[in-house]
Amino acid sequence: MADDTSAALKALIQQVSALTETVAKQDKRLENLHEFNGRVLDQKKTCNAASNSRPRRTSNWPTWAMSAPLTATTTPKGPSPLTP
């Protein structure tokens, strides 16, 4: 009976040791992942700050299209050649 108990305790200790090693590995992996995510977020913040410092265009239209309204007799490059 004592041999069965000691064998069961020995097996339980081995299982607990293996579980402890697994948890330690996962903890280290999670720590590395946390550090990586921190670096990615820092890079994103840097990129956002750089893009916010540049002036943004207010429109997707070319600048010549916004300078003067087009009429029936004008084209983007000036008066139409068909104008009398």
Rank of each mutant, 00 (worst) to 15 (best):
M1I: 06
M1C: 06
M1N: 08
A2Q: 12
A2L: 14
A2S: 14
D3R: 03
D3V: 03
D4H: 11
T5F: 15
S6R: 11
S6I: 14
A7L: 14
A8P: 07
A8F: 09
A8W: 07
L9V: 10
K10S: 11
K10A: 11
A11E: 13
A11I: 04
A11T: 06
L12Q: 09
L12C: 06
I13K: 00
I13W: 00
Q14G: 09
Q14I: 07
Q15Y: 07
S17M: 08
A18I: 10
T20A: 11
T20K: 12
T22Y: 08
T22S: 07
V23Q: 10
A24Q: 10
K25C: 10
Q26I: 05
Q26A: 13
D27K: 15
D27M: 10
D27S: 15
K28I: 11
R29S: 14
R29I: 12
L30V: 14
E31F: 11
E31V: 10
E31D: 15
E31S: 14
L33K: 13
L33C: 13
L33S: 13
L33I: 12
H34C: 13
H34I: 11
H34S: 14
F36I: 13
F36S: 12
F36N: 11
F36R: 15
N37R: 12
N37K: 14
G38W: 00
G38N: 09
V40P: 00
V40Y: 04
L41Q: 06
L41K: 06
D42G: 00
D42N: 03
D42H: 04
Q43E: 09
Q43H: 02
Q43T: 09
Q43A: 07
Q43F: 05
K45S: 02
C47M: 09
C47K: 03
N48Q: 14
N48Y: 09
A49K: 04
A49N: 03
A50D: 07
A50V: 04
A50I: 08
S51P: 00
S51F: 06
N52I: 02
S53N: 08
S53L: 12
S53W: 01
S53V: 07
P55G: 03
P55A: 10
P55N: 05
T58N: 02
T58V: 07
T58F: 00
N60P: 01
N60W: 03
N60K: 10
P62N: 00
P62Q: 03
T63H: 06
T63F: 06
W64C: 04
W64L: 06
W64I: 11
A65T: 00
A65Q: 05
A65K: 05
A65M: 06
M66G: 02
S67W: 11
S67H: 11
A68S: 15
P69I: 05
P69H: 08
P69F: 05
P69T: 10
L70R: 08
L70T: 01
L70Y: 02
T71Y: 06
T71H: 02
A72R: 13
T73I: 06
T73M: 07
T73Q: 09
T73P: 01
T74L: 09
T74I: 04
T74C: 03
T75H: 01
T75G: 01
T75E: 07
P76F: 05
P76E: 07
G78W: 00
G78M: 02
G78C: 03
P79G: 01
S80H: 08
L82V: 05
T83C: 14
T83G: 04
P84F: 09
P84Y: 10
